[in-house]
Design a protein around this nucleic acid. Structure first.
Lengths: 117, 117
DNA sequence: AGGCGTTATATTTGTTTGGAAATAGCGTTT
DNA sequence: AAACGCTATTTCCAAACAAATATAACGCCT
């Protein structure tokens, strides 16, 4: 019987959510797949949900994060902007650090293992 | 135009949520008010929601967190156990530390202020 | 012109969530 | 026995959310 500490970190801008764990996962998939629909499929997410997420990201950001194109040789696609990539890097760094920090915290808090005897 | 980093921390036990920010707020209100219904009223929360939350806490914890009594001089009430109080202390400490830590993190991450020029 | 694969958006349907209200049970007090 | 104020639980309804489906637009390609 063990306690687990979990955390979620996200970035807001103008009181709107810009980036969270799920959105970053989606952005990474877009980077890999080159398309929103393929990214959604890879993540087992409906296209609509993926589109809604990216729409929210683009609307809250003041600079473009994802640029999409319709039509053309293979139907179109979606690509990250350099700004988008820098956001991912920043988020993942913060997220990882926070996680490491919490792990340390737990060790220094004995009362979280309150006796079960 | 500024970026804000936000975080949520919670404690799980056996893969069920034990304590989060909202639940701790409710537990504190119970401690102050001595009753679940008054605590709910103070927090602008419906009695049902408060009851559901406490029920979830008591079901996931292996030791009692809130002990409630029905009937009696003033109808009954709800009180925290010493274990419940220790949980609150632990959670609030971790939560506060995490918040402070993230604030420090932001300062050391210049890329979060990606140029808007 | 028509097919293709994609983005973009609307419509529908179903599921989950949450509030409001109603009801019951309880133990002290009067 | 009745009143009181709380906990406990059910029922009903509305709102929020999510999944599925359908449709349109677009631009390259054959």
């Amino acid at each position: 019987m063990t306690y687990k500490i979990k955390s979620r970190v996200w970035i807001e801008i103008d009181d709107k959510v810009l980036l969270g764990e799920g959105r970053v996962r989606l952005l990474n998939a877009i980077e890999e797949q080159g398309s929103l629909s393929k990214a959604a499929k890879v993540l087992g997410m409906s296209y609509k949900k993926a589109w809604t997420l990216i729409d929210a990201v683009n609307k809250s950001a003041h600079e473009p994060v994802v640029i999409s194109s319709i039509g053309g040789r293979d139907g179109g696609g979606a690509k990250l902007t350099p700004y988008g990539r820098s956001l991912i890097v920043a988020f993942e760094k913060i997220n990882k650090n926070c996680w490491n920090y919490l792990n340390e915290q737990v060790k220094s808090l004995p009362m979280i293992k309150y006796p079960t005897e």
